[in-house]
């Protein structure tokens, strides 16, 4: 069979899939996939090394978002930021995990839609503030959480930040993705107003909010069902409790 497309580089994808499924260390899997893909595309070894190096230097900005806030967040944690976030949420009697996360989802998606994408994020918002608050809200009602539920709660905090960000940012006209779509369509001789692309994202954005909010509400009911019986003792937990 004759095709003009070289299908060999797909072996790189295969390496990734197998590596992730078998749970090898991801760094090693990615490095291996890079080498295999390079060989499959008939690149000489030196070119592969240079392509890896060049790509790695070109994408240096990525880890900045994670690395730079760590010094401040670490220092504040040393002085009780997470404890205070828990104490603070404990004072709001009506706060539940569901309400807190749905509120965060709403604000995150709305502000991202207005272009304020940096108002959240995992190192600077989820770890120091959102996660301890959600945990505090849950512990306040049900006492200490079983390990499994605690992990699920923390994972949901991170998920909520991602979902709010993703489905908000793409309906902001000046966002890079809109420019990318606009430019690509222009290249195919289709001229669409960037504003139209942004507006037609709104139905999906609303559905994303509804679907995830329903899931958060159901998680809250699950907590209530499984741990609700403990509520009586939890009512008397002192605010200055230890972890």
């Amino acid at each position: 069979m004759q095709t003009t497309v070289n299908l060999w580089p797909l072996i790189g994808v295969l390496v990734i899939v197998i590596g992730f499924v078998l749970r090898f260390n991801p760094m090693l899997v990615v490095a291996l996939a890079a080498l295999v893909t390079g060989f499959a595309a008939f690149m000489p070894f030196e070119t592969i090394l240079a392509t890896i190096g060049e790509g790695f230097v070109k994408t240096r900005a990525l880890p900045l978002i994670i690395l730079l806030p760590l010094a401040v967040i670490g220092l504040l944690e040393r002085h009780g930021l997470r404890e205070h976030a828990q104490n603070w949420i404990a004072k709001i009697r009506t706060a539940t995990v569901g309400r807190l996360l749905i509120f965060y989802l709403f604000v995150r998606e709305l502000t991202a839609a207005l272009g304020l994408t940096s108002l959240g994020g995992h190192p600077q918002m989820v770890r120091p503030l959102l996660a301890p608050m959600a945990e505090g809200a849950a512990e306040n009602r049900y006492g200490k959480l079983p390990e499994k539920i605690r992990y699920k709660l923390l994972a949901l905090c991170a998920a909520t930040d991602n979902i709010g960000l993703f489905f908000g940012e793409d309906i902001f006209v000046a966002f890079g993705a809109i420019a990318l779509m606009h430019t690509f369509l222009l290249g195919s001789n289709i001229d669409v107003e960037p504003l139209h692309i942004a507006v037609w994202g709104i139905p999906t954005a609303i559905c994303a909010f509804i679907i995830h909010a329903i899931r958060l509400k159901r998680f809250n009911s699950q907590l209530e069902r499984e741990l609700g019986g403990k509520r009586l003792d939890a009512d008397h937990t002192p605010i200055g409790r230890q972890e």
Binding site: N6, P9, L10, M27, V30, A31, G55, P63
Partner: peptide, 30 residues
């Protein structure tokens, strides 16, 4: 965080390499 801090950059590098090697074209073809 350990190596998890470096992983996003590794993957972005792999994305660029996939592009150079024509992985996108192969997938679209399939």
């Amino acid at each position: 965080l350990g190596w998890a801090m470096v992983l996003p950059q590794m993957l972005a590098m792999l994305g660029l390499l996939f592009n150079d090697a024509g992985v996108g074209k192969a997938v679209a073809h399939l």
